[in-house]
Design a protein around this nucleic acid. Structure first.
Lengths: 131, 131
DNA sequence: TTCCTTGCAAATCGTTTGCATAATG
DNA sequence: CATTATGCAAACGATTTGCAAGGAA
């Protein structure tokens, strides 16, 4: 693991991510950071997102839609994906550690964790249906 | 949705999947079905896997490893991924419908389901560590 | 004969990487 | 000055798609 040097671009990427709670993709990060660094390349964005995720300063979300999402909030929490608009939002519940034990019943091996995401229709899309 | 016609290739793909409980990828399906149809193309495998998944005869698993896995067992159940060997196996527990309700607390919207996969070390890999 | 399915190859999408140059320590 | 980071473009792996030819209803 090489020593990390400061870079304005990386800082801008992280700062942008911290302003958002909708878990943007690399592409969204790219087009937004380009407002500040018009010459930044998509490769640099990917490199820094990967680097930040590796050192634990951000987290990478694989939600099964084929695209990686990124989150400046690294505390363990669950996510919700709206099947109408695709929006990703945080859920305000405790981590369900007990389901690891439930899953471990009748299983030959050690279960150390789980990944869960919930889906359904978000508040905004529910409102649209009623109007 | 166009009417579906019989095809030997599709049949072979589905039959192969039914013999396996390790959730193979499209590539694994391809190389195995090629033993029966040496001229089958990867495109045909993908087309049929997608078609079968769309009509609900098989299910497509996105486990966050960047590759799609396929399962002839379409009944709802949970999966376990070994972080050592990458093997995917079924878990013998009931579906935890109650966690949808838990997740729905303090949430403005409707939660209709969830996707969960567990990870850890499988029985075989545990044994290896001890020997 | 109609229209679905195939094999093949090219295209697409998200992501990674090699390389010469620029910036950091 | 040593080394990491950048921009660019090419490479990549998984998956999809256009097309002409083959097979099912």
């Amino acid at each position: 693991m090489p020593a990390m040097k400061y870079s304005r671009q990386r800082e801008a990427i992280k700062e942008f991510l911290m302003t958002r709670k909708d878990h943007p993709t690399a592409d969204v990060v790219y087009s937004n950071v380009r407002d500040v660094f018009p010459n930044i390349s998509l490769g640099t964005v990917y490199r820094n997102l990967t680097l930040l995720a590796d050192i634990g300063e951000i987290s990478r979300l694989r939600l099964g839609d084929g695209v990686d999402h990124f989150d400046a909030d690294t505390t363990p929490h669950y996510h919700f994906i709206c099947t109408k608009c695709g929006r990703v939002s945080d859920l305000d519940i405790d981590v369900l550690t007990q389901i690891n034990d439930i899953a471990g019943m009748n299983f030959n091996g050690q279960i150390t964790g789980h990944v869960t995401y919930f889906y359904g229709v978000c508040g905004d899309c529910c409102d649209e249906q009623h109007s």
